[in-house]
């Protein structure tokens, strides 16, 4: 079938609108999921919660976009820009773009099948995990910033976490595990609800 340039630019607009919509939803849901981290014992597992909550919207997003690489980069970039505006460093924004590229490549490589979506979900789950890297890379400043928000027991717990690199590995590990489990839940939900009513392929 002959395709025209007009059609492709129409789908581009649809993809861009989807990036905006799912970007807003991703921000809201990740904020809700991460709020569990206010309890000191759950700081490390909060990334798992974020991945679990955001898996279903991300799977729906992957199934709806026609330019996965561009859309994943833009989604992560939007998240990065919002986080930079709210006080995170430029380096976090760059990391977001890297994760976006990797997620897009996973989707392109596996032609948006389940494995591709799962890998892309894991890549995007590293975005919220990376938000706490300053706790290890610039501990003093991060603790000084947190001391104006939290009580001394919470700061002491953060300082205890920063003394070893295992919690950092745990943050990424739990994030990835949550993304994998969330991916399987998302596949079931997609089949049960969205594919049945024609909202996803």
């Amino acid at each position: 079938m002959r395709t025209t340039g007009k059609k492709s630019s129409n789908t581009l607009v649809r993809d861009l609108v989807n990036v905006g919509i799912f970007g807003a939803l991703y921000l809201v849901l990740s904020g809700l999921g991460a709020s569990i981290g206010f309890i000191p014992a759950f700081i490390v597992v909060s990334t798992c919660m974020v991945s679990l909550v955001t898996s279903v919207p991300l799977f729906l997003f992957f199934s709806k976009v026609e330019r996965p690489l561009l859309c994943c980069i833009l989604l992560c970039l939007l998240f990065g820009v919002v986080m930079i505006i709210s006080g995170h460093g430029i380096s976090f924004g760059l990391l977001c773009v890297v994760y976006g590229v990797l997620a897009g490549l996973c989707l392109n490589l596996f032609h948006k099948n389940f494995i591709g979506c799962l890998l892309a979900n894991v890549m995007i789950s590293f975005v919220p995990s990376s938000m706490m890297i300053p706790l290890w890379s610039s501990t003093e400043e991060y603790l000084a910033y947190c001391s104006s928000v939290c009580d001394s027991a919470y700061i002491a717990h953060l300082a205890e976490l920063s003394s070893s690199y295992w919690p950092l590995i745990g943050l990424f590990g739990f994030g990835a595990a949550g993304a994998v489990v969330g991916g399987f839940i998302a596949r079931r939900v997609m089949k049960k609800h969205f594919e049945r009513i024609g909202l996803a392929q």
Binding site: V13, V19, G20, A24, L25, L27, V28, L70
Partner: peptide
């Protein structure tokens, strides 16, 4: 580029809708 503008404007306008 429109590739940045459109998602940004949709996202900003969409927060109240999500809530």
């Amino acid at each position: 580029s429109n590739k940045v503008t459109i998602p940004l404007i949709v996202m900003i306008r969409f927060f109240p809708t999500v809530f």
